[in-house]
Design a protein around this nucleic acid. Sequence first.
DNA 1: AAAAACATATACTGTATGGTATTTTTAAAA
DNA 2: TTTTAAAAATACCATACAGTATATGTTTTT
Lengths: 198, 198
Amino acid sequence: MTKKAERTTAYIIETVAPIFNKFGYVGTSMSDLTEATGLTKGAIYGNFENKEALALSAFEYNRSHLLSVIDEKLDIEGGALDKLFSLIRFYRQYDVFTLPFGGCPILNVGIDAQSNNKLLAAAVKETIKEIEGKIALVLEDGIKQGEIHLPVPPLQFAKQLFTMLQGAIAMSTMTRDRKYLVNTIAYLEHLIQKEIKS
Amino acid sequence: MTKKAERTTAYIIETVAPIFNKFGYVGTSMSDLTEATGLTKGAIYGNFENKEALALSAFEYNRSHLLSVIDEKLDIEGGALDKLFSLIRFYRQYDVFTLPFGGCPILNVGIDAQSNNKLLAAAVKETIKEIEGKIALVLEDGIKQGEIHLPVPPLQFAKQLFTMLQGAIAMSTMTRDRKYLVNTIAYLEHLIQKEIKS
DNA sequence: AAAAACATATACTGTATGGTATTTTTAAAA
DNA sequence: TTTTAAAAATACCATACAGTATATGTTTTT
């Protein structure tokens, strides 16, 4: 049996994560969080040092959730192309996936925290690097297997791919129009099929 | 001679615009603004109804600044390709261009205001539509002149182009690495040159 | 079951918030 | 140059903010 505090800590994080993600660090007040959790400040401050530590835990929670799904999409059976298609097909529905999160944690926190919270901004930067690395690994493997060929180094291609995905996420978030996701994924499918397949 | 209040209003807007853009709507306090302007709340509230109206004016100021530069880049002598290259070359240095603005007003406000200010969010949406329209117009003209050919309708291509640009902006903002801009522009130059030139 | 340790609630800091009524100052009109 | 109108400064709301000390419960451990 887990300790009481451990369970409350976990409960607080998962309740609070989408709120921080949606309304931002400064846009979220401690009273928003007591209201959402049904707990008092005593309980929250008993489990977290301050608002910043809580926001950081909340981001880490969203981040690991996202990373594990990306891992899942990249770890399917098949070659590099299969893995890439699996990943970008996931991004076609990224808006519905991130709905319970309160939007894309990378974009939301990455933009919001840029000037308001250095720790969060650094955590986002790290997460981006991590995702790019995962994609690059798949590409490298595909090259080794002679399955694909790239016009630029794998990491650069991975960055370019992720940039396009993130652009689609940004646009569909700002306009509330999922066509940006759908069209970008269609373009990327074409790109991968035509440009990098050996 | 313009009335005193008109000048103060203009002064407030231009002083306040980069602050709102950088720190966001909730992240900016009225005392931040009195401090930056050297004016008192009496002066500010004498010229603006409330914080929201001021933030909206500040965004409109940034927006029209950006739109006029985009117009300038698209209104050069030459054909559609020249105009497109002129525009995307501008975006290669978008980070230094937006430095005095406090970052990209579309991205910053578009993400920040999404859950905190409906008026601002709507204004961003409108601005995106406007820019996409300007690009689409150039493309349509290029098709009529037989200079270019597109695999999709002009507006859709414009949206796709702008999505990639906005993705590069988002990535370079979040990571503070301008390579995303440089590489994306290099890719777009290649894309335009190879894919849409007749 | 009692004692000790832990976890949560209560009640309260001091400060900052957006906003306003009123006075004082400054600029425009006579 | 005086009057009048406009603009900005002052002083002040009430409320919300992040955070804390202390008291009260509630689990664990003995």
